[in-house]
Design a binder for these strands. Structure first.
Lengths: 119, 119
DNA sequence: CTTTCATATGAGCAAGTGTTCATACGTTTG
DNA sequence: CAAACGTATGAACACTTGCTCATATGAAAG
């Protein structure tokens, strides 16, 4: 009868209503992908560490590497990804490249995550 | 001279001080990994969609699948992962398994992310 | 008990990810 | 200029991830 519920489980009326309402409220696909891509940045421990460091202080690339005990190359690769996501930015200062957070939401996002992890 | 800065870039005093201070403030490795693992859950568009749906209403598995246009199997696999992360929970109701958000932080985390994505 | 419906699960595969290694680039210093 | 330092980058590789397909499980209805 109701073509919309062709694929729904066989519970007759109630479910279809709710499904329709929720469908209307969902963000568009572009927004959802952007959002997932943003959270991907926080989903790797190396990037997470870098962000934590930069929450405390701006810092040059090799200091980040040394502080975290991760190779300069690995750090540099991750910094590039973080820059592409507009989460961090950098400036040159003599021979060094100084990196710093470029987005105020980083703290907010991490804080929300910490609330979960620390129960 | 200073053995700590053996691997640091050659800027003499200033950097080592900052590095030491930041090192003291960093969360321990366990916390960092947990945090990254948490954000991984939000880093896939399928899981993101599921979480958005459940933010609006609890819902049975096959309705989620139909609403999102994703196979039942794929949804089920992702639900399992989300349950392992304690982000969602479920109960049986007749033939259906009803899924619902198990953590209040989900909304907070997603909202923070949205603030970034929507400029 | 048998069938049916809703869900779960395992194997297999294609695509994505993060690291290392070697090397290139660009700035500064002598 | 050449050498040295800090950083970036590309290729290669191991590993992970998310999907599909087939099938199993388990509650409910006949």
């Amino acid at each position: 009868m109701d073509e919309n519920s062709e694929l729904l489980c066989e519970v007759p009326e109630a479910h279809a209503d709710v499904v329709e309402k929720v469908r209307d409220v969902l963000p568009d696909d572009d927004t959802l992908y952007e959002l997932a891509d943003l959270f991907k940045m926080f989903g790797d421990s190396t990037r997470m560490k870098i962000l934590f460091v930069l929450m405390e202080s701006e810092m040059c690339v090799c200091d980040i590497a040394e502080l975290l005990g991760i190779s300069q190359s690995a750090i540099s690769h991750q910094l590039r990804i973080l820059k592409q996501s507009k989460l961090i930015s950098s400036r040159r200062e003599g021979k060094n490249i100084i990196c710093f957070l470029a987005d105020d939401h980083v703290r907010g996002i991490i804080d929300q995550g910490l609330s979960h992890v620390l129960e």
